[in-house]
């Protein structure tokens, strides 16, 4: 980010920065595409975007660079993450192709398009680089402001209207009208008593089974997991983690160690058998 941006070639520092960060950006882009989990893709994309922000700064677009970090990476990518969480963070996307020939066609088109684009850039006479030094003479932000509020004022107003419309539209799309009044806590309690089922609150997830994650089902006294303990949303998504086998094995190992330390004889076969059955 040298203050004087060279016209024809860049400084060695910038070149070094480009090759290192550029490689990382491409890797980030590729992993955005090829990561199995959406949350990983999102994080890779965020990384790529930050690198792009650095490149903006290097090209004299100081305002855009900062906006890229604050708005794009900070706000938009976080929105993505929110939605990923809503949809299900662990829902892994199978990369197996279902449409016949789609992947090959996509790769063919991608390679063809890329080659043609690169060839086009190589073919173009892009030798003259004026640099933004003069344009940024009064400061980048002031320069942008002068343009936005004069030459591009209509476009600016229209994008403003677009943003408002988008916000209203998103609200309309996701808003669900309640058709009836939500039940108060008192009414819910009365309903439980009336039905006579689960009069006390539902059991908490697997905290008593030495796990404190909400997606781990609590174990019943005989070692089997109880679905009831997990939130209905997770159950619907099929994101319940069954740790009963693991827990029983842990238990057995603990007992083993305790017996070894107490130098007791191994447990009776009958007892052993029972625990094996329970583990099934």
């Amino acid at each position: 980010m040298s203050p004087q941006l060279a016209a024809y070639t860049t400084s060695t520092g910038e070149a070094f920065q480009f090759w290192v960060l550029g490689t990382v950006a491409v890797i980030g882009a590729l992993s955005t595409v090829f990561m199995k989990k959406a949350v990983h893709s999102a994080l890779s994309l965020a990384g790529t975007m930050i690198i792009l922000a650095v490149f903006y700064l290097a090209n004299g677009a100081y305002f855009l660079g900062i906006v890229q970090i604050v708005v794009y990476t900070g706000a938009i990518m976080m929105l993505f993450l929110f939605v990923v969480m809503l949809v299900g963070v662990t829902a892994a996307d199978s990369l197996k192709e279902t449409i016949k020939g789609q992947r090959w066609l996509a790769l063919l088109c991608g390679v063809g398009f890329g080659v043609l684009l690169l060839a086009g850039i190589a073919n173009a006479s892009l030798k003259q680089f004026n640099g933004t030094g003069q344009a940024n003479a009064n400061g980048n932000v002031q320069g942008l402001a002068a343009l936005i509020f004069t030459k591009y004022v209509f476009a600016f107003e229209i994008t403003g209207a677009l943003l408002i419309t988008a916000a209203v539209g998103a609200m309309v799309l996701t808003h669900r009208e309640r058709t009836e009044r939500p039940k108060t806590q008192r009414e819910l309690a009365e309903q439980r008593v009336r039905e006579g089922k689960h009069v006390p609150p539902l059991p908490a997830p697997g905290v008593y089974a030495r796990h404190n994650a909400v997606d781990v089902a609590g174990l019943l006294p005989d070692g089997t997991p109880s679905e009831l303990t997990v939130s209905k949303t997770l159950r619907d998504r099929g994101q319940v983690r069954d740790v009963s086998t693991e827990a029983l094995n842990d238990l057995r190992a603990l007992e083993q160690r305790a017996e070894e330390r107490l130098e007791r004889t191994p447990v009776e076969p009958a007892h052993r058998k029972q625990s094996e059955e329970a583990s099934k």
């Binding site: 789609q102 063809g112 398009f113 060839a119 086009g120 073919n123």
Partner: peptide, 22 residues
Amino acid sequence: GYARSYAVSMFGGAALLVAATL
């Protein structure tokens, strides 16, 4: 009916346009 299939056609068309321009 797969949007991705249609997208491939669009993308191929874009590639052809670039080629035509060049």
